[in-house]
Nucleic acid binder design. Structure first.
Lengths: 206, 206
DNA sequence: TATAAATCTCGACTGCATTCGACTTTCTAC
DNA sequence: GTAGAAAGTCGAATGCAGTCGAGATTTATA
């Protein structure tokens, strides 16, 4: 019985996350109070704060749970033989659909992942890394196939596609595009990025 | 004296914004309470809510004030003769410096502009449009000079650059890059976008 | 000018995140 | 085993955003 304490802590933390997964999904983040969360986890209100610094941090744990699952799934779903664009579309559209399934969740998630507060910077590191690995593998393979320039750091390649993805998600949240327009807009942007925004060399010499 | 009421309302609203500009700049958004704001504006707490729906909306008014000034300035600063990349750098770096002058302000601003809540969607419309006009004029001129492809909707061209800008800002907020790296990273991304991510036609045919 | 309707103003009130510090349980060292 | 230290638990207290409704002021109608 030496590990009683640590074991118990792990269990309590799990209980909080479990309650969060349940309550956030059911009532949304804002509508779920810490007190409810505590009650559902069978502990006192104050105790939550020995496990998480604030409500947002509980949300991060919730996200990890959600996203690890999704992104593992996406890693399998992508066809390594398809074109970069098709692979990118599979991954980013899959992510989009999941992230925006609950629009409130998606908004908060994007806000926090892209522009985290100082104290939260490291909260997404783990999930982020898995996501990055997935992206990097896609773009590295594309470089090997000579589908993408080899003189660009794969991190930058991933950045380009990710940036365009963010833009599309933002456009949807801002009401500039409708849900049905997301896919075609994203594909068009990806194609343009691959081809380049400058007139092609052939045309330029004319 | 027919317009007393409306005149007074305008004056009160101005007083609130003025108090906000002062207090937000001095103590930051989070640390400034509505009550303080009301006191500084010489009105009751509840009255604030006849002028603004919530605290965030006061922040929007504050933003408009800040940004209108900056973006007008930027519009003048950009040299219409320079390359698209140079012009883009001037505009986006100028924006970056201003938006992140107060890091807390910038974070909140980016979060709200990119992923607004349903009720806030229209709050930035006015400022947004001016910003967009500025960007569009840059990219349209570049198309005319044949520096950028004419078969891409200028809106999409602006989107590409804006997307990369967002990525860089996000990278800075996430601590993935330092302040000094912002400019070179942005420039590199812009160059890559213009040239395209695919190997050049010339190389491809080899 | 008198009265009713509309609008505005206020601060007490509500609800919730977060803090605090008194109390309890577990660990450590003898 | 036991005393004292360390860590964990709790809900009452705090602070703040946002609501409410009673009263004040302005406008519209006559």
């Amino acid at each position: 019985m030496t590990i009683t304490r640590e074991e118990k802590k792990r269990k309590t933390k799990r209980a909080i996350i479990k309650a969060a997964i349940h309550l956030f999904a059911e009532k949304g983040f804002d509508k779920t109070s810490i007190e409810e969360l505590a009650r559902a986890a069978g502990i006192g209100k104050g105790t939550i704060y020995t496990y998480f610094q604030n409500k947002a941090e509980i949300f991060y744990a919730f996200c990890e749970d959600q996203l690890e699952f999704v992104r593992n799934e996406l890693a399998e779903k992508t066809d390594p033989g398809a074109s970069v664009i098709d692979q990118s579309m599979t991954v980013f559209m899959g992510d989009f659909i999941h992230v925006t399934r609950n629009s409130e969740f998606g908004r908060f998630f994007m806000q926090q992942v892209l522009f985290p507060e100082e104290r939260d910077k490291n909260n997404f590191a783990e999930v982020d890394n898995k996501w990055l690995e997935l992206l990097l593998s896609i773009y590295q393979r594309a470089q090997e196939r000579n589908e993408l320039r080899k003189d660009i750091d794969p991190l930058y390649l991933a950045g380009h596609f990710y940036a365009l993805y963010i833009l599309v998600v933002s456009s949807w949240y801002s009401g500039r595009i409708e849900r049905e327009e997301v896919e075609p807009a994203m594909r068009l942007l990806f194609e343009q990025a691959v081809e380049g925004l400058a007139p092609s060399a052939a045309l330029q010499t004319v």
